[in-house]
Design a protein around this nucleic acid. Sequence first.
DNA 1: CGGAAGCTTGAATATGCTCAACACGGGTGG
DNA 2: CCACCCGTGTTGAGCATATTCAAGCTTCCG
Lengths: 244, 244
Amino acid sequence: MTEVFTEKRRDVHNSSVPRVCVSCEARHHGICGVLREDELLELSRHSLQTEHQPGEELIGDAEDVDSYATVLNGVVKLTKILQDGRQQVVGLQFAPDFLGRLFASQSSLNADAASKVRLCRLPKSTIEQLVRNNPHLEARLFEQTLRELDEAREWMVTLGRKTASEKVASFLYLIASHADPTREVGGVSFDLPLSRTDIADFLGLTIETVSRQFTKLRSSNVIEVQNHRHVKVRSLEQLKGLCG
Amino acid sequence: MTEVFTEKRRDVHNSSVPRVCVSCEARHHGICGVLREDELLELSRHSLQTEHQPGEELIGDAEDVDSYATVLNGVVKLTKILQDGRQQVVGLQFAPDFLGRLFASQSSLNADAASKVRLCRLPKSTIEQLVRNNPHLEARLFEQTLRELDEAREWMVTLGRKTASEKVASFLYLIASHADPTREVGGVSFDLPLSRTDIADFLGLTIETVSRQFTKLRSSNVIEVQNHRHVKVRSLEQLKGLCG
DNA sequence: CGGAAGCTTGAATATGCTCAACACGGGTGG
DNA sequence: CCACCCGTGTTGAGCATATTCAAGCTTCCG
């Protein structure tokens, strides 16, 4: 983890917006978008930007939590582990998602950086006080929770009822929809934010099965793959058709 | 569906509690518990108790929704279906859960009565207005949503990473924890609110596999089964140990 | 260039699925 | 009252899909 320089002085050209927040990717679409100027200023005085390498643990299972965070960029994976080590990824969070389970003093899952991740850490007590005083903030967090619940249920169908190839197609489609891919001649392309191991843990498969399905998609010209990570999808429509 | 007699006159002995609500199982623990007396009275004037038989559809996928509901008793299953008919149960709701996705004009899933179910229907607009005016109600619904998200993620581990026998054990443990079982000498016993088909759709298995796992649990003396539906668990601790 | 980590491929195996037959229980009608 | 039927659940045999285990290949980085 690396702390990033945080300048708290006001920007003279944006008199009321804290300097740290001026160029923030998450200011408008994340939770900060619903804060009043004075609230944002107050919050920014307690916030801290941090940078994390892939694989780094952000929140541990059964660990005391003293801060929430906004994801500024990168992908965070939420995982659960069985006693014997079997692991399941139960959620992915992208910018500008809010990270952390509101009102819980202990986390019931692990949050790890899947890719390089930059967070804006927000003290637990400050956020909880803001939530109590600003109904718009509570509403925004409620909305995100409802969206996450919808996504979790959608994914339960994938886990419970889809075949290995449908699972991998669904995963690629999901990433293509989130990782703002660059449109190219004859398709869209993007970098996978997850390793094969993470993909397997997300899909409830083994890495070998995931790998074989990638190979199958390559052979049937649905995707091209470079360096194992960079994927080009010929047609999102075709990919969607393979999702079951 | 059968409409149940709804008496709107005030109960003289409970001057401020609507007659319909006096003996309601959900009044204190469901959403009604956070309403002021005048709000409860107003809401009760628009509420309607309905009774449903097992298998009856309560809310259809992609159907316009004009009412929410509180589950008074019975079990509601939330399902999603793939084009080719494969089905996945993505949630179970027990009394006094609130039923319906807030703020969505269309449902993205099916809600069906798994057992006999009694609902208290609440008009969409009335609830949404109450939510806007009563922060306690919003908070209560937020809490339920967070709980459902936790449960969904817990279940994703079961779907993605557990074996067939661990899945069935987990299901029995889940039901035993919700269906207020009667403690007996040497164990607890309860009725399954779901058919083998529903259980299979919940666990991402086939009915044959579910059936075989029940047989295995019977042969190894973990459970006793009567009439396919009535289950007695020797030891919840032992069962928990089989959940993976 | 060498080593390590991550990924792919192959062969053998196991777990859960498919298809088919049968059992059980509850309701209906002769 | 019994025969029959239908819905639901169980059991069995063979099969398919995904896993396991093992080897080899890329890619990255020193």
